[in-house]
Computed example of a mutant assay.
Amino acid sequence: MSNNSALPRYRFDGKQYRNTQPLPKSGFKETVKIFWDFFFNKPSNTQPAAPFEVKKLTQAELLAAPDNSLWRLGHSTLLLKLAGEFYLTDPVFSERASPFQWMGPKRFHATPIGIEQLPPIKAVILSHDHYDHLDKAAVKALAANTQYFITPTGVGDLLAKWGIKEEKIRQLDWWQQTELGALTLVATPSQHFSGRGLGDGNQRLWCSWVIKAPQCRIFFSGDSGYFDGFKAIGEQHGPFDLTLMETGAYDPKWPGVHMQPKESLQAHLDVQGQWLLPIHNGTFDLAMHAWFDPFEQILALANSRQVALCTPAMAERLDITAPHKGQPWWRPLAKEAMAQSGIVANEPS
């Protein structure tokens, strides 16, 4: 762990974690209105008109793929093949990102591959405990085929309660690191919150991750509002070949814990990223914006700032060391809704 006292650090009172800077608090009436609008006043374009098809992956295809490969499986769940082994971020395979499978945000698309079809997983890398990032059913199903679960402090204790063997769990505070074969994983700050119920708010830490492999360096943002911690991460561990940057589920009413697209782009620049891959989008309806808005906004912003952006479709392989721009795969699925909204599509630069 770094001994630099100037680095951003969370605050802990013995029970709850706090961000480096206090988050703005909403009043009771404002909070009620936010929840009311979220559940009863949503625009019709926050999800596709119908579920869409994605490419199906096979274990044979994954095993045959070269090192430094990445596949988006949905939302913030990514499969990476690094130094001959597989790593999985924030695995959510259930139908809904919710404590209940009969209500809550439902997937726009099926998972490209079932858990039982995955190759052996060296490590599951978790950013925090929210339901759209930590799927209890998936974690329990992955346990037999996964060597390690790497978590921020406190999240590993939750996994142990679920039956994950303690020798498989490694928990890290901000700026701590662990070695896994040829990889180094560093838990780095994020500005967010935690909790899975009414009585466990902020009792487990949240973080972003630096992933250092022999041939590439990756930043995985987890969930975060924009803050000065990104610059500190870039100074300590940048530059990065690829950033996996939260770009979705934003709203002006909760600026402290999720970034607007322009902030996602700035965070990418702050950590000294070369290529930007926007994540936390395209799978669940978690905000009031159109489901395709994150893609269109980040594409326009990247074009204007001459930032290298890659938008692979779900299950499309990306070479981390030589990314390709990808195609605006969401547009055929959102064509009618975009036309109704008067949106003029931007072309990749």
Rank of each mutant, 00 (worst) to 15 (best):
K25G: 05
A300Y: 02
T20Q: 11
H237Y: 15
A60Y: 00
P91Y: 04
R170M: 09
L82D: 07
P66Y: 02
L276A: 08
I279S: 06
R196P: 08
W206S: 12
K262W: 11
A97H: 04
D129A: 09
K262E: 15
F52V: 08
Q101K: 05
H128M: 06
P43W: 10
L23I: 08
P348E: 13
S98L: 02
T283I: 00
N303M: 10
W174K: 01
P51D: 05
G238Q: 12
P120D: 13
P214C: 08
N346I: 01
C216G: 08
T188G: 06
K56I: 11
Q59E: 15
F38W: 11
G199P: 00
A334S: 13
P91D: 07
Q21W: 03
K55P: 09
T31R: 12
H280M: 07
K56P: 07
K231F: 03
A49S: 15
D223I: 00
V155T: 09
P99A: 00
D132W: 03
L118K: 03
Y131K: 02
F220H: 14
F35G: 09
V139W: 07
G225R: 02
D13H: 02
A300C: 07
I164E: 02
G282T: 06
A60S: 15
A65E: 11
L78R: 03
F28A: 12
Q21G: 00
L299A: 08
E235L: 12
K55R: 15
D200T: 05
L126Q: 14
H280Y: 11
L183G: 10
T77P: 07
Q297D: 14
E53L: 10
M259W: 05
L62S: 13
K165S: 14
V155C: 15
L172V: 10
I150S: 06
F35E: 11
P328V: 06
D251R: 07
H237D: 10
A60I: 06
T178H: 12
G229E: 07
S190P: 04
V307K: 09
W102A: 02
D67Y: 05
P112R: 05
D157A: 15
V139G: 01
G163W: 07
Q59N: 15
T153V: 11
L134N: 08
G84M: 01
G326H: 09
A138R: 07
R18L: 04
D251Y: 00
F292N: 06
L198C: 00
G156L: 04
L126G: 01
M338K: 03
L242C: 12
G225N: 09
T283H: 13
M314G: 01
N145T: 13
A97G: 11
L301K: 08
D13S: 03
K33W: 13
K81T: 04
P332S: 04
V307C: 14
V139K: 01
V257C: 04
E246F: 00
Y87Q: 07
A49E: 15
Q236K: 14
L82T: 08
A315V: 09
G201M: 05
D228Y: 02
S76D: 14
Q260R: 12
D241Q: 11
D223P: 00
Q215I: 00
V257Y: 08
Q177K: 13
A302V: 08
A302M: 08
Q117S: 15
E116P: 06
P294C: 09
K262C: 05
T20Y: 02
P323Q: 10
I150T: 06
L301G: 07
